[in-house]
Simulated assay, not measured.
Amino acid sequence: MKLAKTYTFLKKDLSLIEKTLEETVYAEQPVLHDASTQLLKAGGKRLRPVFALLASKFGDYQLDKIKNVASSLELIHMASLVHDDVIDDSDLRRGKPTVKAKWDDQVAMLTGDYIFAKALQQFTEIDDPRAHQILSKTMIELTVGEIEQIKDKYNLDQNLKIYLRRIKRKTALLISSSCQLGAIVARTDRTTEKALFKYGYYMGMSYQIIDDILDFTASEKELGKPAGSDLVQGNITLPVLYALENEEIRSDLKKAFSKPNEVTQADLQPIITKIAESSAIEKARKVSDRYLQKAYHSLHLLPENQAKEALANIANYIGNRKI
């Protein structure tokens, strides 16, 4: 089953959000407009808007309000991707040239800043101080996560705790906030809001771990970039952490990382293959599965409706996705 089929009843609402995104990123400055539009048209799963919409279905669902939350969250995600591509020196995303590849680092950074600003402008439509506090805290944590990732690049002396804290900040909190903000805008009760927040957090953790696994197990065509790109950029993900328990892999990687600025895809390809074929992949998948089970458990506290079924189906899809 394709992901979109798990929430077909949101199709019309998601079309409106897509239109809102297009209108929001419009800029009179040609380069800024072209760069922002290119990023938007590159596609994506639009998971954060989906989670916000589904969470709102547990309360007073008003599309004119929730669309502002949903579009703001997607814009924040998009902006972070533009900045990520500069930090990681990535030329491809989803098989298409990144903003920094088509223009340059400066244009990319300013485009990211512009999209962040537009996200905040969009969110001013929400008249709830608590919602603004949650979004602000999420953005702060997202930034800290990015800094931590830069600091830990090419560092083989990491542990599980460091990795989990990093992906919490970089990925999970924006997804959990999507669920929580959707609940707040719909004025659900606090028990429902808390359950949705937990679901989003556990889903975000599982999602990122699966992403890190796919970086080794999926093909270049499926990824839209060479397999093992994260490792080439010096990012130590969960499969790598487990693979480092193998002394041969640790020794090979330490040698390759001795000159981090010179490491290439070709240099690391034998190590990437070893990791993909090692037990590290299954170990990482088990960690993802544990978070997934916690996400399912969080749903037990929610009333039965179409949105709850969709959230369960999304969890099932993400836990078994191949790309």
Rank of each mutant, 00 (worst) to 15 (best):
K137D: 12
K137C: 11
K137T: 12
K137M: 14
T138S: 10
T138I: 09
M139E: 01
I140G: 08
I140H: 06
I140N: 13
E141P: 01
L142M: 13
L142C: 05
T143D: 09
T143K: 12
T143M: 09
V144P: 04
V144S: 09
G145W: 02
E146Q: 02
I147M: 14
E148F: 03
E148Q: 07
Q149C: 12
Q149M: 11
I150W: 03
K151H: 12
K151W: 10
K151L: 12
K151A: 15
D152P: 03
D152S: 14
K153F: 15
K153I: 15
K153Y: 14
Y154G: 15
Y154R: 08
Y154P: 07
Y154V: 14
Y154D: 15
N155V: 11
N155K: 14
L156N: 15
D157H: 10
D157I: 14
D157V: 13
D157G: 15
Q158V: 11
Q158S: 13
Q158C: 13
L160V: 07
L160F: 13
L160W: 05
L160H: 11
K161D: 10
K161E: 15
I162F: 10
I162K: 07
I162A: 14
Y163G: 07
Y163S: 04
Y163A: 05
R165F: 06
R166E: 06
R166D: 08
R166G: 05
I167K: 05
I167T: 11
I167C: 08
K168S: 08
K168Q: 04
K168W: 05
K168N: 09
R169Y: 11
R169P: 04
K170T: 03
K170V: 03
T171C: 04
T171I: 06
T171G: 07
A172N: 02
L173N: 06
L173R: 09
L174V: 07
L174G: 02
S176W: 01
S176R: 01
S177F: 02
S177P: 01
S177Y: 01
S178H: 00
S178Q: 00
S178W: 00
S178C: 00
C179R: 00
